[in-house]
């Protein structure tokens, strides 16, 4: 046995425990989902009727699903920009501080440790009670908006809470990248007379491109599946005005007509869309990364 083979095998063995769990609880359900997507199973009956592509044809004409898709895309685009700009800004601001780095890092990362369901209910309380208290008692009338009932303000509320939840996580990634930028490059740049603005865009930013790739990949991926924030904040309401695709799928599977098969088909469609977008994104961004 060659050394190479030996190494491979030990690698496989080390991966085996995690991989078997991954296989049983992720891969197997994902692939069996392809089969369920072609049935009209209601999650209860013992027989599953195979209906081929019937579900997918129905999705094509499903107004609510595509409205949810549109809403989710809007949400993803806004989040992509807002969350990453905020996170990078915070990371740079904290990194440039001499004292208290640890405290700020912990503070901003804290919301990420709270489950977003709980975060959502907390903010629900803020939007429906605290803000109105400020309006009624302190005269801050600009806060007197229908934060849950008006689709436009509900969207803003959702963006605020989502940013609050994930900015800390992205910030940590950016901070790690910032710490990896060699000090001599920045020193050399400033000796050559670069302003700190130029220093950031010409030296630091290109050096942290790889973390930008990761962060955008992660935000794209997870924001397309947004569920908990919206579920706990607006419940997708009023009506379906703030319904994301994940909530639409959940409702199809667990409420109303209880259509497991159809809901699985919808999640297949979501998967394909997210997959295509992330592949394109990774291709584009990988090309622009720099290495020393």
């Amino acid at each position: 046995m060659t050394k190479k083979k030996r190494e491979n095998i030990s690698l496989l063995l080390f991966v085996a425990p995690a991989f078997s769990l991954y296989f049983i609880f992720k891969l197997y359900p994902a692939f069996s989902g392809i089969y369920y997507a072609m049935t009209s199973w209601n999650g209860l009956s013992r027989t599953k009727q195979f209906i081929g592509l019937g579900n997918f044809i129905e999705i094509y004409g499903d107004k609510h699903f595509w409205n949810a898709m549109l809403f989710t895309s809007k949400y993803v685009i806004v989040m992509l920009i807002a969350a990453n700009v905020l996170a990078l800004g915070l990371a740079v601001a904290i990194e440039s501080r001499r004292k208290g780095k640890g405290i700020f890092r912990t503070l901003f990362c804290m919301p990420n440790m709270i489950s977003m369901i709980i975060g959502g209910y907390m903010w629900n309380f803020i939007f429906t009670k605290v803000l109105y208290y400020l309006t009624d008692h302190w005269g801050m009338t600009f806060l007197d908006k229908s934060w849950i009932g008006n689709p436009r303000y509900a969207f803003i509320a959702i963006i605020i809470v989502s940013c609050w939840g994930i900015v800390g996580y992205l910030m940590i990634i950016y901070m790690a990248a910032l710490q990896g930028v060699p000090a001599y490059l920045m020193e050399a740049a400033s000796l050559d007379g670069a302003s700190s603005w130029q220093n950031f865009w010409k030296v630091i930013f290109p050096m942290i491109r790889h973390s930008l790739t990761i962060c955008i990949f992660w935000t794209l991926n997870s924001m397309f599946q947004v569920f908990d924030v919206i579920y706990s904040l607006t419940g997708g309401g009023p009506g379906r005005a703030t319904q994301s695709v994940a909530i639409n799928i959940y409702e199809e599977a667990f409420t109303g007509n209880i259509r497991y098969g159809y809901a699985t088909a919808k999640s297949m469609v979501l998967f394909v869309i997210v997959f295509l977008i992330t592949v394109v994104q990774l291709r584009l961004m990988k090309r622009r990364e720099l290495e020393l």
Binding site: S146, G149, G237, P238, G239, G256
Partner: peptide, 14 residues
């Protein structure tokens, strides 16, 4: 379920 959703929308006027 749909009745509940629609009444919410009816209330907000959409």
């Amino acid at each position: 379920d749909e009745q509940g959703k629609l009444l919410q929308e009816y209330y907000v006027g959409s």
